[in-house]
Design a binder for these strands. Structure first.
Lengths: 298, 298
DNA sequence: CTACATCCATACCTACCAGTTATAGCAGGA
DNA sequence: TCCTGCTATAACTGGTAGGTATGGATGTAG
């Protein structure tokens, strides 16, 4: 009996929430649509998975048995798909490059040009990651190499090559009082509300909130942004301020937002990263192209 | 990205056949439908899985990577479903009983009555297996206990309790010359064409062709039947003859078919079987009910 | 005990899609 | 060059996944 994995995903959502309305919200569909689909799943399998009343939802024994299996199946499928994409990229000689925000800044173009000169038969596919994933897709295998901003999660088995280091600046609403400073004193930012990266980003989040520089002074997080676009929009609308790399200031202009240097704050380092177990020659060659572009011929 | 497992099944079929038309036949759909669905799969995954020309079909690297994963996913799902069904049966106290052809013959009713008397809160679900599976569903876990005809595949870890032994008879087209005998001599059947069980049934097939009694005399198999109904239909239409249990003769009357005892042939033994690792009390109790019904109170 | 709030189910509608048959188009072999 | 075999395309039909509006049941507050 075949089944659409979508239905399994729906079932898992309901089984986890034990609440159709909430599960439907989580899945971005209407509650009746969800009710109908789960019922359809039960019909297709000829099994009752849930006991519902207008007040309570609970799993049957069958539902209980199916839940972990369904989770597993969805995970396995996701991994299969990743492996398949990797095979496809390899076959048509496409190097998948992940990046975040403005990648390697002005250096990016040079790097890609240098790589293309060295290996003209390879194609490059650039994909921008959301802030929730500081490994830019290396973690889940959706890219082969990535321009990452340190720190990356330590538990990831990544090889790193530092490409550059640049000061962190602060982005402020234009009308903000601190915007008058040429260089904003770090101490003056301690009580400002910050736009933060998502919690899943771990140590990365702390870095961009400058937690270690605050010496225990608590952070006010006023909003969370998934990307530079959301971040800059939040700042322009006065929700708060945020640190960023100097080069980002050149890439993300927007009326209503100004960028200023900050004193007493460590720089941001940009690195090329790849999975340590990925020993492909093409990776080494991309790293070499990066090194060549980063340190112009003496 | 979710996917319908049906599409994966389609892909696997094409990948195995490397031929859309043949794969479509195997899947019992039209060739254009299959072409469209495989293309849809590729579109959904944004991957080319197959290179097609009007003359050749071959896998891409992506297709090659996906194929084993897809097979695995389908198998895993099938097993999950079986486990879930078992949980459902357990919860609503349903004992799933497999059987083949006429189960335990006239004894069946008594057994079920006895079991129901002893454990009235349990329900019984009877499901008839096709001849391709002499374990009657124990192998794949779709039943809890089964009335099986020996021999059962030896490699299956099954517990067995012999319930009865009865002579094998032969079924003949009414007009067949041998139908004149009261008891058909085994030797006279050596060159008759036989309706056989499917090859997957293994040693069971040999037993019902009486291979060991033939002492090396080759068998003529004129047709294969998946069930008693197909079998009796084939015999009535004169395609051949076949051995069966004596009790089956009483359960499957049909104009155009006659049953006769055969000499010099070993009997058929019927057993109750279950998975050896299944230690549930209810299994033991069903076995006890069978024993009680099989050997009426002294 | 009644009124209310909450939540799942049902009814009904629309857009899309899986399947069908018929046929076009392409490629290899006699 | 024609024939044959195979996949793709076209046109159609029934079914279904999604939507909104509303019914109906049940636990809770007063």
């Amino acid at each position: 009996m075949d089944v659409d994995l979508r239905l399994l995903r729906y079932f898992v959502a309901v089984a986890e929430e034990l609440h159709f309305t909430r599960a439907a919200e989580r899945l971005f569909i209407s509650q009746p649509a969800l009710s109908k689909q789960v019922r359809l799943l039960e019909t297709q399998l000829r099994l009752k998975l849930l006991r519902r009343s207008s007040r309570h939802v609970e799993l049957t024994a069958a539902g209980n048995a199916l839940l972990p299996q369904a989770r597993q199946l969805l995970d396995t499928w996701s991994e299969s798909l990743t492996a398949t994409r990797a095979a496809a990229a390899e076959e048509d000689r496409t190097l998948r490059v992940g990046f975040i925000t403005n990648a390697a800044g002005e250096l990016t173009t040079q790097i890609l040009a240098e790589f293309t000169r060295r290996r003209p038969e390879w194609r490059i596919s650039m994909s921008q990651a959301l802030w929730a994933d500081p490994t830019c897709g290396l973690r889940d295998g959706s890219v082969d190499v990535a321009f990452v901003r340190l720190p990356v999660p330590a538990q990831e088995p990544l090889a790193l090559r530092i490409l550059l280091s640049e000061p962190r600046w602060v982005a402020l609403p234009s009308a903000h009082p601190l915007a008058r400073h040429e260089v904003v004193p770090f101490a003056s930012l301690l009580d400002e509300p910050f736009i933060a990266t998502p919690p899943e980003s771990g140590t990365w989040r702390d870095f961009w909130l400058a937690v270690s520089e605050r010496r225990g002074h608590p952070v006010r997080v006023s909003a969370v942004a998934q990307s530079s676009e959301e971040w800059i929009e939040a700042i322009a609308n006065g929700f708060g301020v945020g640190f960023t790399a100097e080069s980002t200031a050149r890439f993300y202009h927007r009326p209503g937002v100004v960028y200023r240097p900050v004193d007493e704050i460590s720089p941001s380092r940009l690195a090329l990263a790849w999975r340590r177990e990925d020993r492909r020659r093409i990776i080494i060659e991309f790293a070499a192209a990066c090194a060549a572009a980063a340190s112009p011929a003496a």
